[in-house]
């Protein structure tokens, strides 16, 4: 938010710093979710063994959030509430179909990423609400997950990023696929059509190519200083293949860097 103020892109009359509100910085497993308080710092997530065990996708993605100096101050709630379509955490939350807990003086409300992210830097958050907690569904130990990103330099805004979680049946075909892409649409987007395409099929090069082609049809990137729309579209296809391959190898019990 401070960059927006420094560049005079935003000139709010009042700012309320919630940084010192107690009790909003925590990470714990609760049933099927990894529950993270809005004021939990990126750095705490990066260092957390619990996150690595329960949601390795989040551990992998968090390292792409800015640099250490940013992650020491930045919070998970801030990343979600900011609504940047190229940000890592919204992409992960969208892929996992997680939940955002909003609070106001009357109580709490739980919304999905789909309901929460409206367009570039705009969310459904009302002036009297705050993001209280983020719930990331726990990833089963047998699943394979992967977060891949291309940025001009590590720590820059991502050009394209893809989060994938796959499950394989005993026969080795996809029994569940969760896939989301960031940086190419006005909000982080779950690639539901691609998920359906992959479901029940055996992972192979031909199938990944089909998933890649469909992704390129689905995304609607825009051009900017860092890359043209055509480049981002091509990159989307490539990144979907990379994420799927990595996640599949991990689900098969292999290790990939």
């Amino acid at each position: 938010m401070i960059p927006l103020l420094n560049m005079r892109l935003s000139t709010p009359k009042y700012i309320i710093d919630i940084g010192r509100v107690g009790g909003l910085s925590y990470i714990h497993a609760d049933g099927e979710s990894l529950v993270i308080g809005a004021l939990t710092k990126h750095r705490d997530i990066e260092k957390s063994k619990l996150v690595k065990e329960k949601c390795p996708l989040l551990s992998e993605a968090i390292r792409w959030v800015g640099h250490e100096q940013i992650r020491n101050r930045g919070t998970v709630g801030g990343s979600i509430a900011h609504g940047d379509p190229s940000a890592e955490l919204p992409c992960v939350l969208t892929a996992l179909r997680g939940e955002i807990v909003l609070a106001d003086e009357n109580g709490e409300e739980i919304v999905s990423p789909e309901e929460f992210f409206l367009t570039y830097m705009l969310t459904s958050l009302q002036p009297d609400q705050l993001v209280k907690e983020i719930r990331f569904p726990i990833i089963k130990p047998a699943s394979g997950s992967a977060f891949v990103e291309v940025a001009r330099r590590h720590g820059d805004f991502g050009l394209v990023e893809v989060a994938a979680v796959v499950d394989l049946s005993e026969e080795g075909s996809f029994s569940e696929v969760k896939l989301a892409i960031g940086g190419v649409n006005s909000i982080p987007t779950a690639l539901e059509d691609v998920e359906r395409l992959l479901f029940g099929k055996e992972p192979n090069e031909e199938l990944f190519k089909k998933a890649s082609d469909l992704t390129m049809e689905l995304v609607e990137p825009e051009s900017d200083l860092h890359g043209t729309a055509e480049y981002r579209r091509e990159l989307s296809g490539t990144m979907v293949i990379r994420a799927l391959k990595k996640a599949t190898i991990r689900a098969q019990g292999g290790r990939v860097m």
Partner: peptide, 27 residues
Amino acid sequence: CEHGVCGACTIHVNGDPVRSCLMLAVQ
């Protein structure tokens, strides 16, 4: 740069390196 990119303003706050251009003095 005054928006957290260049790192020139890095200082330590409570022992951690942070961008001083991304914090208000009151914080």
